[in-house]
């Protein structure tokens, strides 16, 4: 269980410090993250993606199987993870570009509460319009075998794990879009 008792009082003290240090300490890593890359690894044999039902910030439940027939990009992330923050605008751009008819993005947050994430998204230049889901005990990421954040999966229209990317990616890259369009073209 997560302790809740002193969260509110201490967060107000530490959030500015975290933000400051994230900007300064990890500024050094900018060169490492400057090129996020765009490659995804094909997964074989194709296996059914682990199912889940998770709530978003408005406490609406999203069930993976409801997205059957669409290509789904599942992104496991957290606000404290610098590459997760860096790839978020490109993820939004991709989502905006490809629309929601045949494509969905589900950003599955790890171990953070909606209040904290809402504050974080408010600080972004681009507010994510795709669903941000909450995996408070990291049970779903464990089902997916996620070892580090961010990790992303592309799920095909039949609900199978088709591709994986470990580490941040430039989702706005044409090759990523091409991959998704190819998956959409499959029967």
């Amino acid at each position: 269980m997560r302790p809740q008792s002193h969260r509110i009082s201490t967060r107000s003290l530490y959030v500015p410090l975290v933000c400051l240090v994230l900007l300064s300490v990890f500024a050094v890593t900018a060169r490492a993250e400057g090129e996020l890359g765009y490659r995804f690894t094909p997964l074989a044999p194709l296996q059914a993606a682990p199912g889940f039902s998770l709530q978003d910030m408005d406490e609406e439940t999203h069930t993976l199987s409801d997205y059957r027939g669409k290509v789904v990009l599942v992104n496991f992330w957290a606000t404290w993870c610098p590459p997760c923050r860096k790839e978020m605008p490109a993820l939004e751009a991709l989502y905006k570009k490809l629309g929601t008819d045949d494509f969905a993005v589900l950003a599955v947050n790890q171990w953070e509460d909606p209040d904290h994430v809402f504050t974080y998204t408010g600080d972004l230049n681009v507010f994510p319009s795709f669903p941000i889901l909450f995996d408070p005990e990291s049970a779903i990421s464990q089902d997916y075998g996620v070892k580090g954040l961010p990790t992303s999966f592309l799920i095909d229209k039949k609900g199978r794990l088709a591709y994986r990317a470990v580490g941040g990616r430039d989702f706005d890259h044409p090759e990523v879009e091409k991959l998704i369009l190819e998956l959409q073209a499959q029967p």
Partner: peptide, 21 residues
């Protein structure tokens, strides 16, 4: 405490383009 993030994963196989921290 069920927290399992922030530390470098014990072991990983990085495919082409993969990275971690």
């Amino acid at each position: 405490v069920a927290f399992r993030w922030s530390m470098l994963p014990d072991d990983q196989t990085f495919e082409v383009g993969d990275w971690g921290q």
